[in-house]
Design a protein around this nucleic acid. Structure first.
Length: 506
RNA sequence: GGCCCGUUCGUCUAUCGGUUAGGACAUAAGAUUUUCAAUCUUAUAAGAGGGGUUCGACUCCCCUACGGGCUACCA
């Protein structure tokens, strides 16, 4: 049996070459559940910080008032905690760089926007949404090659005019003055140098008309004041990074190190979504996955330790993780491999450690009163199902016949084992099972083997119909330990009922 | 459309110019078994295409194709 945590990487930790401990952040937007792609980004940030003895900050980017969903916050926190990704600074944890909600830092953004305005690096724009929309349509129609995007209409407004509109309370945004035709270059730790012509960038909005900053301004300002040294984020941000570089320049700040993580795709190559396999971290929890399995699996999406090691616990992941080994290529989420890995981790769990969670699932399954009263019995059942399960939910879902009589018989198995020839065998079994002492797996096996020999048939002829009769299905734990755990009374009752069922069908 | 990023078995990946291109999941076959699962054996399976550079390219460069991202007062 391959056990998790066999790689022995502990002790190989190295300090970050540049000396100073790094500071990273995970900055989700509370617009919905935390999906596995976000979780993977959080995980990489966490691993990087721990590996280099740095700090991991959680920051909430709630600057979009329209898309804000209050319950999303709880989901994000719960998801991160479930995966074991504790943050050193942020909501609940506190820290010296708070507040950690961008909605509570609007003064700071406004101050820097004013600073840029005063320095002539930014300007107020009074264009209406209608005008912007019309502009976009016209550009589309004209198929403009260059200069698409905002046309800098308000960039040349004179001070008097601006003052007049301001006094009139006209709604406006603040835009950055993007320099003409200049190369904007940044180094991506995963992809190397990426250069963009500033002519490709339009005068982006820094401050929205509702007073909130855009992501671009807020993330630059926060990363600066929170002393973030490494920005590890999804690669959908690559195209925006030149804008961020320009903002750093305008503010006179040194940009952090950038490293863009590859995306995670669904099996069909498309984007991961609720419909294409689960996407929410908490959905995986609900589906019976173990956090350490999902974490291990996610770590291997876009990253590999370099040797053939795959099963790694948290300490080993931390010890082995480096940015150099993060891949640039998008990775497909392979549910089958996750299932396998989860099964491996599940086998590593003791019955005791599984008890509480499985019991919770059973409790939600509408079982007869008192069915779950005997803890020793529950443990026995878990032990029988654990080894043949890949998820916790399978243990609970496949073992219901230990708490109530089967409601029906699996049709395919019934066709095979509930034939007329089974009737005399049932009679023999009913007769002998009533008297066997003790009702133990050893004695039961002796009974079955003996009877098979007497009748000159294979033991399977007795075993299979019995299994179906007592469990309703054609698969499960070894029959004799199953019968022992079920107890004589239950076994006889179910066999009797199965006999009637077979007889009734002629 | 423009700009940017990417391309090794079906999937996740190893390879940092010279390998019989390795491992894992999945798949198939066999062993084992009272079923299922597990376990053990074995097998199938890859450098998108085309040009360069080089004594030698999966590895470096260019082109094409394909996939993805961005092109919002969303993040």
């Amino acid at each position: 049996m391959t056990r998790p945590g066999i790689c022995g990487k502990i002790g190989e930790m190295t300090d970050w070459k540049e000396g100073m401990p790094p500071v990273v952040r995970f900055a989700p937007s509370p617009t919905g559940y935390l999906h596995v792609g976000g979780a993977r980004t959080a995980l990489f940030n966490f691993l990087f910080a721990r590996h280099h003895h740095g700090r991991f900050i959680l920051r909430i980017e709630d600057t979009d008032q329209k898309r804000y969903q209050p319950q999303a916050l709880e989901e994000i926190f719960a998801s991160l905690k479930w995966l074991g990704l504790d943050w050193d600074e942020g909501p609940e944890a506190g820290g010296d760089h708070g507040p950690y909600f961008q909605s509570q830092r609007t003064e700071l953004y406004r101050r820097h926007a004013d600073e840029l305005l005063a320095a002539g690096r930014a300007y107020r724009c009074f264009c209406s949404e209608e005008r912007l929309m019309r502009l976009r349509q016209e550009q589309e129609k004209a198929k403009m090659v260059r200069g698409s995007g905002y046309d800098r209409h308000c960039r040349g407004l004179d001070e008097a005019e601006v003052g007049r509109r301001l006094a009139a309370g006209a709604p406006h945004v603040v835009r950055l003055k993007v320099p003409d035709d200049r190369a904007v270059i940044f180094h991506d730790r995963i992809r190397g140098d990426i250069a963009t012509d500033s002519a490709q960038l339009d005068d982006l909005v820094l401050l929205k008309s509702d007073g909130f900053p855009t992501y671009h301004l807020a993330n630059v300002v926060d990363d600066h004041w929170m002393e973030v040294t490494h920005v590890l984020r999804g690669d959908e941000w690559i195209a925006s990074t030149p804008k961020h570089i320009l903002i750093y320049e305008a503010l006179g700040w040194a940009p952090p190190v950038f490293a863009h993580m590859p995306v995670i795709l669904a099996a069909d190559g498309g984007k991961l979504s609720k419909r294409r396999g689960a996407a929410s971290v908490l959905d995986y929890q609900r589906a019976g996955f173990l956090p350490e399995a999902l974490r291990n699996f996610l770590a291997l999406l876009g990253w590999a330790p370099g040797d053939d090691c795959e099963l790694m616990n948290l300490e080993e992941l931390i010890a082995a993780f480096t940015l150099e080994r993060v891949q640039a290529k998008a990775a497909v989420f392979d549910q089958a491999k996750l299932e396998w890995m989860n099964g491996v981790y599940l086998q590593g769990h003791s019955v005791e450690s599984l008890l509480a969670e499985v019991r919770l699932l059973w409790e939600g399954m509408d079982l007869p009163a008192g069915a779950l009263a005997d803890e020793e019995h529950l443990k026995k059942v878990i032990a029988m199902f654990k080894e043949r399960s890949k998820r916790i939910s399978e243990i609970a879902g496949n073992s219901l016949y230990f708490f109530r009589d089967p409601l029906e018989y699996e049709p395919q198995a019934a066709r095979k084992y509930f034939k007329g020839e089974a009737l005399p065998l049932f009679d023999d079994l009913l007769d002998r099972l009533a008297g066997v002492e003790p009702f133990s797996r050893e004695a039961l096996e002796g009974l079955y083997r003996g009877l098979a020999e007497e009748r000159g048939i294979a033991a399977g002829k007795l075993i299979h119909p019995t299994r179906l009769a007592v469990s309703g299905v054609g698969f499960g734990p070894g029959l004799f330990e199953m019968l022992e755990a079920l107890g004589r009374e239950t076994v006889l009752r179910r066999l009797q009922r199965a006999r009637e069922h077979v007889a009734g069908r002629g």
